[in-house]
């Protein structure tokens, strides 16, 4: 009990461990897993990412043209990165950024 009392007392003069969040930003680590980004120019439309995505966050919508339209839902995404690993043109057509999804 004495130990805890001494620590509580010394904590009065220590810096607080919590962050005033919306005003102060939290330091992110390198290689933070953020949004999946896509480039239509490089895509070869193998649909592998659509196939492996566990929560169906990536969907290729059928269109009238030859190629289907890439659609990504960041709210469904679990940021596992399985699509990026399976992409034949990793880092060119599909890559994982460090951005956070927008808060609506």
């Amino acid at each position: 009990m004495i130990k805890s009392i001494i620590e509580s007392f010394s904590n009065l003069f220590a810096k607080s461990e919590t962050i005033n969040y919306p005003y102060e930003q939290i330091a992110k680590f390198k290689n933070y897993r953020g949004l999946i980004e896509y480039s239509a120019d490089e895509c070869i439309f193998c649909y592998k990412c659509e196939k492996v995505c566990p929560p169906d966050a990536i969907v290729f919508k059928p269109t009238k043209e030859k190629n289907r339209l890439y659609e990504y839902n960041p709210n469904l995404c679990i940021y596992c990165g399985e699509c990026v690993r399976n992409c034949p043109k990793e880092d060119l057509a599909l890559w994982q950024s460090e951005k956070k999804p927008k808060i609506i």
Binding site: S8, F9, N11, L12, A14, K15, S16, E17, T18, N20
Partner: peptide
């Protein structure tokens, strides 16, 4: 506030 300071909170 005092108690929070003792627990290293704001």
């Amino acid at each position: 506030v005092l108690k929070a300071k003792m627990q290293r909170r704001k």
